[in-house]
Nucleic acid binder design. Structure first.
Length: 435
DNA sequence: CGAATTTGACCTGCGC
DNA sequence: GCGCAGGTCAAATTCG
């Protein structure tokens, strides 16, 4: 569906007769790139009423096949990013120097995006092969069933429902509806069983330095309570979202006891209404973090709470450190935006897998989907290699890998979140490239 | 005067 | 069962 929409956009110029500027750019690998640029500002174009006339459209024919391939895997978010970057080259002047500078800049962007797409595709194929192998051997099905039959209660607590459907999954993204449970809903939702409701009460805590009593997240909040919390002289304030009637989202705001310049904002729930653009960054970030938390909440029955991922983990950036706590009644993921936080020098992503795995992920790409794929693939590799991992854990790892990478909703949220992080980073988008 | 905030009461879950 | 702590409710109060 989304891919078809993208094609509609891409093909929306078919009926228009814009002059085509063709240039040939030598590529570093020896081949040449054919650049076709529609000149919307040509004097010959007397009937130019296309609403996209200010958009500088460039198409690199060399990459048509790759682009289509990624469309087919449902990677629309990346394409959106790609098109957005192209939009940055609007031609509002006839200044030739500026035009050339724009071209050079966009060519660089296109090369980066092409690299991202290639890596995404590579990871996608890799993960798909893994899943197909498992499907062929039925190893996953049998062992997962065995695990589920061992302790139904524990299973329901530890394995999100989308994982239970894994044995019915024959193709990634074949049934997006089955992944809807990745969302966490209002704690007031009475249809939830105890364990499942607990899973859905995942919280995302954001630490940020602020003198103000609230951080600006673009939403409208109404304070409905304040309490003194144990162990903190600063009161905790309770807010609910008032952007829509019945929106289940709550947030708690409290100053850090150790450093009162740090404001800790904890979000719970998912907005049931459209968000303004100003609210999208925070909402998508917290949503993605919560989804990651829920999707990663696969743990064996032992209580080794922390899973450490070396610098370069998916939520790490020069200004973002992520930790996860299972000490609280509800799983809480913390996004630390305080630039001088002590853990910044050793950013960690605590993941509630039972094994003390050190993936040491080499994120040599900026692509959100590639990051996800690398993370998932690396988890799979470590799960299969690590001698101390129990067989059931390996299977759960496999299930998690498949489910996380097959959940388009989660992928979209994660892409938005990482995209927002990248958007605030440097121009080279190297926030995720660490060693 | 309506909306937002404050604040004490109340409810719930959990550990002992 | 009791006490504690977290979370929510709603009447009272404040604010624009």
């Amino acid at each position: 569906m989304e891919a078809r929409c993208e094609n509609m956009v891409l093909n929306s110029f078919d009926g228009h007769k814009f002059p085509l500027i063709t240039t040939i750019t030598p590529h570093e690998n020896g081949s040449s790139i054919i650049n076709n640029e529609m000149d919307f500002f040509s004097k010959s174009n007397t009937n130019n009423n296309n609403p996209l006339m200010n958009i500088h459209v460039k198409e690199e024919k060399e990459h048509d096949q790759q682009l289509q391939l990624n469309l087919n895997v449902g990677n629309s978010s990346l394409l959106t990013t790609s098109r957005t970057s192209h939009n940055g080259g609007s031609l509002h002047t006839n200044n030739q120097a500026g035009h050339k500078a724009d071209l050079v800049k966009m060519k660089r962007e296109n090369e980066g995006l092409r690299s991202m797409l290639a890596q995404v595709n590579q990871k996608y194929v890799f993960l798909q092969r893994i899943i197909q192998e498992k499907m062929v051997t039925h190893e996953t099905n049998d062992e997962m069933k065995t695990i589920m039959m061992k302790d139904d209660t524990k299973q329901s607590l530890l394995v999100p429902s989308e994982f239970k459907n894994l044995d019915r999954t024959t193709k990634i993204d074949s049934n997006p509806d089955m992944n809807k449970n990745a969302e966490f809903d209002s704690p007031k939702d009475g249809n939830r069983g105890g364990a499942e409701a607990t899973m859905r009460r995942a919280r995302v805590s954001v630490r940020a330095r602020s003198e103000a009593s609230l951080i600006t997240d673009g939403c409208q909040w109404r304070k409905y309570g304040q309490k003194m919390a144990k162990g903190n002289p600063c009161p905790r304030a309770y807010y609910r979202c008032t952007m829509a009637v019945g929106c289940p989202v709550r947030k708690q705001v409290q100053r850090c006891a150790e450093d009162r310049t740090i404001l800790i904002t904890t979000y719970e729930g998912t907005h049931n209404h459209p968000l303004p653009q100003s609210a999208m960054t925070m909402a998508s970030t917290t949503s993605a973090a919560a989804s990651m938390l829920l999707s990663g909440s696969i743990s064996s029955s032992d209580h080794h709470n922390h899973h450490h991922i070396a610098p370069g983990s998916m939520f790490s950036s020069p200004n973002l450190t992520t930790t996860l706590s299972t000490a609280t009644p509800f799983p809480t993921i913390t996004l630390d935006l305080t630039s001088d936080h002590s853990e910044l020098r050793q950013p960690q992503f605590h993941f509630p897998f039972s094994t003390n795995v050190h993936p040491n992920i080499d994120l040599n790409t900026n692509s959100p989907r590639a990051v996800m794929g690398q993370l998932a693939g690396q988890q799979y590799n470590n799960a299969t290699k690590f001698s101390g991992v129990e067989s059931s854990d390996r299977q759960l790892m496999n299930a998690a890998t498949a489910a996380v990478t097959s959940d388009p909703q989660f992928m979209a949220a994660l892409a938005a979140a990482i995209g927002s992080i990248i958007g605030h980073g440097n121009d080279n988008d190297n926030n995720f490239k660490r060693n």
